[in-house]
């Protein structure tokens, strides 16, 4: 089991999952419910940030 391989694949996925999390943000903007933007933006930033960090550390 090679950790670097696994971390690399997972970090890549995490960065792309963050993009998917922007779709509910779009739904919130369309429905003019701006209070709902923060939960999804936070999750997206966290996912992308962690993914980037993991990729850099391996």
């Amino acid at each position: 089991m090679r950790l670097s391989y696994i971390v690399n694949a997972i970090s890549l996925m995490m960065m792309y999952i963050s993009l998917v999390l922007l779709l509910p943000v779009l739904a919130a903007v369309i429905t003019k419910d701006l209070n709902s933007v923060m939960p999804f933006i936070s999750a997206a930033v966290l996912s992308a940030g962690l993914g980037y960090l993991m990729r850099e550390l391996v």
């Binding site: 089991m1 696994i6 694949a9 997972i10 996925m13 995490m14 999952i17 963050s18 999390l21 509910p24 923060m38 939960p39 999804f40 936070s42 999750a43 966290l46 996912s47």
Partner: peptide, 21 residues
């Protein structure tokens, strides 16, 4: 292993917005 861990991580990330509610 990547598949199993990916689903766990996807679940954790998906859960983050619910914490705000």
């Amino acid at each position: 292993f990547i598949v199993a861990v990916s689903w766990i991580i996807f679940a954790i990330i998906s859960a983050i917005p619910y914490l705000f509610y």
